[in-house]
Write a protein that binds this DNA or RNA. Structure first.
Lengths: 339, 339
DNA sequence: CTGAAAGCGCTAACAC
DNA sequence: GTGTTAGCGCTTTCAG
């Protein structure tokens, strides 16, 4: 008859090594109170039998899963992807895995349902990425019975959070244009329900209110380059033309630049363009894009550190970590043209 | 004294509802053999106590984790990211989560160590993405005691795998250029140790061997746009200039286009450029990039389906799923110039 | 230094 | 329809 192909348990190893299960456990956990010889014997048996501790049993015993849940509405998005990378790396460094809990249904009811099931998951805590495509969720929706850290920049949220300092980012972008002499600046914003989009647009509007920037309506795109091409064409029909465009992300900056190229105008000689994100290709756009670098990996790292602290029992003080951005000046911005 | 803040177990619910733990279990699992009234009572107790089944206990009992491990060397990479998205969605549809197991150390020894720890993880099987930055791993390294599916296109690997049909993709890209009359085509390849890079380059070399394409050395980049800018400058020093460039990914196509723009040449009037991947921005590059679309979400889906089958006990037949690509013709390729 | 016993929370298998 | 028993694999007492 065929040998059973099941994984050996701690008892099998114990029997094989002629010791108790306890001793095997001690060896598996590097407990010092084991005679060197015994340890040798147990180790040998483990190797021979191909023993691996069963994590389900460990989890049950310890009440810990050593995994953190990463909840997101959309993975294929620069920001979420980078944040996930930061989280996964920080988690790994802490000996945790990262469990993906995608919420396909980004409606409030879908989110509520998903959160309801969340605490059944094999995770010790949750990092929720308030994706830019989803509006605000009410607090009850997010009341999971698990430690929670939110990745977002909306400091009014009642949760511990980490995020990019959107306001500071938008300010240095616009200040850069102001420093170059630009006053007639168009803002291509992200979708209306996105908090980062709003926050960046607010800084722009404030400068208008202060009279530092010419009054022009904010133009809303959907973060996609394609949406910005169309917006770009619209911008280029205005008279006079603006001297600069502040796009709320690099993709839309790319779209605007395409529209400008299509029209046969030069960047930055005729119009300056600045983006936000500093995506991989930005330095190689034509021309190389001046943009605002977000330290999303750092955001992910901070969120993870906070969550691990909460999991360890520290009280939730609702701390807000806003990570500052950095201006990256390249070739798409220049002095205001003389016309 | 403060009430204990621990999560209620099935026994607490049973006591509260005045039934046995078994009955609570039956209710939790929608077992039909429960009196409607009893069910009501139990459900009420569950809600009142905020009961959620403990997944660790369930896992221990069932021997299943309902999670699949996604092993990768690098998340911040278009292909891996998209594949992960496909996997996560397919897994979710099957009621599984996706556990990220990043391997920071992409050396053979690092990989070996990581695989050694893999079967301790709370996953039922593994999807390994043979990232383009890592060379071939020997078979022993990958001998985890867990069902395994590899995402790659190297059909010589002894594992069940899903991947893009690199050869077909490279062929339609080059055929497109040939159809436009190009013969003097440069290939900007990915790094030497990447299988997809090799496979795409091989198709190019074969056409050269057949005399369909002018003999020119393959130029190796590192997938990054920056590397391709430099290569592009080198290409533009050759005399005569090639009439077309086949870049092994969109990022490098972007870099080559930048070099061409820098030199003041027109695309595609002077030189045609074709990429590979069909990344988000490709349609908005200047000019819009002709490229080869990879169905990476489909690859992820197939890999997941195969893995779930293996987990369900189907024998591993080493099936190879190669997903064909699609040519996306945009504005960066045109007829061969008259010189 | 080592072993025995108990139990984490849940669910199959069997009573009643 | 419902309750009882036993045990998944491991580790935390507590004895020796």
């Amino acid at each position: 008859m065929p040998r059973k192909k099941t994984r050996p348990s701690i008892i099998d190893v114990a029997a094989h090594a002629g010791v108790s299960a306890q001793t095997v456990s001690r060896v598996a956990n590097d407990n010092p109170n084991v005679h060197a010889l015994t340890r040798q014997r147990v180790l040998a048996s483990m190797k021979e039998l191909g023993y691996r501790p069963n994590s389900a049993a460990r989890n049950l015993k310890s009440g810990r899963f050593r995994s953190i849940g990463f909840v997101t509405f959309n993975l294929t998005n620069f920001g979420n992807d980078r944040a996930l990378d930061g989280v996964a790396q920080a988690a790994e460094a802490a000996g945790c895995t990262t469990t993906l809990l995608p919420i396909a249904d980004a409606t409030p009811s879908g989110v509520a349902g998903a959160f309801g099931r969340l605490e059944e998951q094999a995770v010790d805590g949750i990092i929720l990425v308030m994706s830019s495509e989803v509006g605000p969720l009410d607090d009850l929706t997010m009341a999971a019975g698990l430690p929670l850290v939110v990745i977002d920049s909306d400091t009014r949220l009642p949760y511990t959070l980490a995020g990019t300092d959107q306001e500071q980012g938008a300010r240095i972008a616009l200040q850069h244009l102001l420093d170059l002499g630009h006053r007639d600046i168009v803002h291509v914003a992200g979708p209306d329900l996105s908090y980062p989009a709003h926050n960046r647009a607010d800084v722009y509007r404030r400068l208008q209110a202060e009279g530092q920037v010419t009054a022009r309506p904010v133009l809303f795109g959907d973060w996609s380059a394609a949406s910005a091409v169309e917006i770009g064409h619209r911008i280029l029909q205005s008279d006079p033309l603006p001297t600069a465009v502040f796009a709320a992300n690099d993709q839309m900056a790319l779209g605007v630049m395409k529209a400008i190229h299509d029209r046969g105008l030069r960047i930055p000689e005729d119009i300056s363009v600045i983006g936000f994100d500093d995506t991989e290709g930005a330095a190689t756009f034509w021309p190389a894009l001046t943009t605002v670098h977000q330290h999303l990996d750092e955001v992910g790292r901070l969120a993870t550190a906070e969550l691990l602290a909460l999991i360890d029992g520290e009280p939730d003080t609702g701390k807000k970590h806003l990570v500052p951005t950095r201006l990256v000046v390249r070739d798409s911005t220049g002095p205001v043209p003389h016309r």
